[in-house]
Design a protein around this nucleic acid. Sequence first.
DNA 1: AAACAGGCCTAAA
DNA 2: TTTAGGCCTGTT
Length: 276
Amino acid sequence: MREHEVELRVTSDFDLEKTFECGQCFRWNADENGVYTGVAQGRAARIRQERGSIFISGTINEIETTWHDYFDLKRDYKKIREQLSIDDFMLKATEYGEGIRLLRQDKWETLCSFILSQRNNIPRIKQIIDTLCAMYGDKIHSNGTEYYDFPPAKRIAALSEKDLEPIKSGYRAKYIIEAAKAIAGGNLNLDALSQSTQEHARRALKQLHGVGDKVADCVLLFGLNMLDAFPKDVWVNRAIATHYKNNLDPAVFSPYAGIAQQYIFHYIRNKPVHHG
DNA sequence: AAACAGGCCTAAA
DNA sequence: TTTAGGCCTGTT
């Protein structure tokens, strides 16, 4: 038995692989045919792309209530790419990254995930989050398989560092427990922060142990839907050093500095190496 | 084996 | 305000 699948027509600027592999999310994995499975918005889904269409398991209602928003479908990325093409480098980066979309992810999941991401590589981050969800997330039955939702903050808040030893997150365990407690205890309200200014939200996030500039900016961009946040990881810093003599003010990309960051990141990491 | 991995914290200038 | 060293764990 195969579950129902819904077709979603996409004319331009939607590349499933680029969107899932450009560093913003950790819970989507492709099989050998490029079919992605994962959990988001409390739902498990299979998603694949064939030329001009995306096929998502589930109902048409779920597309409208969940995935349309998750994939940020109403935004015109082609137009934004044009705005961001301020020089030759950005023109190349935005052309190369055509199809990247900013996912609108769960706020707590994003905060927790990017705390865990520090000083780690992507396969390990995925492994840690997988184990965390399997141990403490709600079970989701879908298409004959069991998946696990991301555990709510309230549940993580009740754990000890010992409880988190199996996920092997190392010294980051105490950081996510503290963050979870701040949320569960009402001292940190991510929904409210997403309605405040970027500066205010950034300051609030950085009050948490284990949240510095980079993690805070990732949460603003990927979780709080603040598209002008510009996370600077080692790759982006490398690009800025190489192409802008270490002198680039992200404000030149405003109000879409975060989207610019995604194109830069993706381009620097994946562009073909030129010989000779 | 020693360094590093999509940072952050603390101590010390 | 900037800089140096250490950090859990795993891989190369």
